[in-house]
Design a protein around this nucleic acid. Structure first.
Lengths: 201, 201
DNA sequence: CGTGGGTTTGACCGATTGGTCAAATAATGC
DNA sequence: GCATTATTTGACCAATCGGTCAAACCCACG
């Protein structure tokens, strides 16, 4: 029953989620309409609802998939690696995600700005636990003198904001840079910022 | 004709803009409804439309007021002052705005994320000109060895993202910090980050 | 007072919203 | 080939959307 996903089912579900990502990331949940998503997916509204039982179902499916990819880089930090290398590697991975998946970043940003009504529990649960754990590691690094003493939580916020900014505020960044590719200079500037903050003198 | 704004007119216009800020900053333009705003303003929908001729009029009035306050701190940078002091002062002013006017920040964030359909011209015009001008000043500071050599544009983006993050992602920040006040540690961490990036060795 | 302006709102409008349903169509297994 | 199932959609629904309008209200000022 649950395993009978046809080729065509998989394809249409993927198409719908792609279309939903496009629309939701631009207008947020309440600002998006099923007609918009159906049109972007190239199918009729009833056909869309044949695969997802509601607008909310499309949205939560997108959020669920997103959260997996979102937490992954944080988990990938090597607690036994070189501190500066690990933290810069994490930041660069996040920056790559902003470059390659800007719509996912904006979908997430929209959800948070609107008060995270659907993922507040994840933030206070899984995400907080993960950050708490990393914070202990970072505090250990600082205590050992391997990085400068920093507040680990605000360090994490710093990395998040610096990287996601290029996806979420893409329009503004490009308006100011003119024709220059934002990600060209972003990476080296990000590295420089974090090195200045972390590297022991 | 244009000067006959009664006491009650001023009061109701202010009430409506307050309510509009509350609603728009949470749901964006398309996700907000006139009924919501009218209810938040404690008046009927036709009464609201007696003071603003459309939903769009409320929104653009809010954006116009916002943009003034938004550009002001950037203009206030003293081109002849101490570089590090001026840049840290600017960052701290922006952080104060995130603390004291988080809804304004989220209103702006919503508009940008959604592609800035109503203020794209301001971004590419007035804002870009202002940033270009500051960039020249910063490059001058760097050339004189008064700050480390940095890309002035990405430096500005850094300040924007670091400060606005605390308003725009407030829910996430508080979810992770638990009961701790975010702005407690934010300011010193921000200062440390920028000093590490700017201060010549 | 009372009257003329500014103010407020209930009722309503056409358009759009999320979602349903029965019927038509396409694919699949035998 | 044919029947069965999966897929697709036009037509439709109640609710909500932004906005209108005429009538009621209120409040100064003579």
């Amino acid at each position: 029953m649950a395993k009978t996903d046809t080729r065509i089912q998989k394809k249409n579900q993927a198409t719908i989620m792609q279309a939903g990502l496009e629309v939701f990331s631009q207008f947020g949940f309440r600002g998006s309409t099923l007609d918009q998503i159906a049109k972007a997916a190239g199918m009729s509204k009833p056909n869309l609802l044949y695969y997802f039982k509601s607008k909310e179902a499309v949205y939560t499916a997108l959020l669920a998939r997103l959260l997996e990819n979102w937490l992954e880089p944080l988990k990938a930090i090597d607690r036994d690696g070189d501190p500066v290398e690990q933290l810069l590697g994490y930041a660069n991975r996040k920056l790559d995600m902003s470059r390659n998946f800007p719509r996912e970043s904006r979908l997430f940003a929209n959800e948070i700005i609107q008060g995270a009504p659907r993922i507040g529990d994840v933030l206070k649960g899984e995400l907080k636990d993960l950050v708490d754990e990393i914070a202990v590691v970072i505090n250990g690094w600082a205590a050992a003198g391997r990085i400068k003493p920093v507040d680990p939580y605000h360090l994490i916020f710093t990395i998040w904001s610096l990287t996601q900014h290029y996806a979420d505020f893409d329009v503004q960044v490009r308006a100011i840079l003119g024709g220059v590719d934002p990600f060209e200079g972003a990476q080296s500037h990000l590295d420089m910022t974090l090195r200045g903050l972390l590297q022991p003198t």
